[in-house]
Amino acid sequence: MLKINSVGLTISAVPLLNNITIDCPRGSVTALMGPNGAGKTSLLKVISGEHKASQGEVEINRQSREDWKPAEIAQFMAVLPQSSTLEFSFTSEEVVALGRTPHATGTVRDAEIITAALAKVDASYLAQRSFVQLSGGEKQRVQLARVLAQIWDHCECEGDASTDGILLLDEPSAAFDLAHQLMLIEIVQQISARGVTVVMVMHDLNLAAKCADQMVFMNCGHCTAVGTVSELLTPELIKKVFSVDAEVITHPVQGTPMVVV
């Protein structure tokens, strides 16, 4: 579904990404991890088309990123940025409605989707509130509802659409409380089960371990390691990438690997 083929990115003579190759099959969840400035967000921006790759290319649905028109790709690919800069007092409902911009599904269907998307992120009670007055976590949940609304048909009805959805999330859980971090994981698992390919930047190794099919460790614009959660969560690799001494233990109930520092 999404292929990153030896992508390099250089901006103003500063190399930000170097020979990155990642394959994200349909319905997979990929977690991009690494210290600050490792190039995670830059890579996400190359995928989303904000930066053009200096070398290599991104392939979406067997077609080069360059060949997709913005209006076409917006039908099935949504991007959640780190933070929002919206200064105008839209209600939360109206912000979510903006997610329907690429579609011409009509106001009735859109209203259904908006209500459902707000409910999905536990933000129904925010619908009529002014977005600018929300807390950081509430804003991020409304923005999450907006990107879900954008690719709603891909999230909710499998095989209905001609192309599968892609969702790019940049530190989606940074502002969330514990309950909403788990809610995010659940949503990611649900939509990936319906065929949506998810690529997300995350800092919390344990949270990422709960839902990622594939982890990517990045450092200084290079891809240090790519593999499954249990392959990557080792004390040696964590020491190498994050310069932190950590123990990896097994979750007493779920049996998944857990990082303890």
Binding site: S48, P70, A78, L86, F90, T101, Q150
Partner: peptide, 15 residues
């Protein structure tokens, strides 16, 4: 309306 979210957000919405 989309550009009020930010230029890149508008781009991701197909503008």
């Amino acid at each position: 309306n989309a550009i009020l979210l930010g230029e890149s957000e508008a781009r991701h919405l197909g503008v």
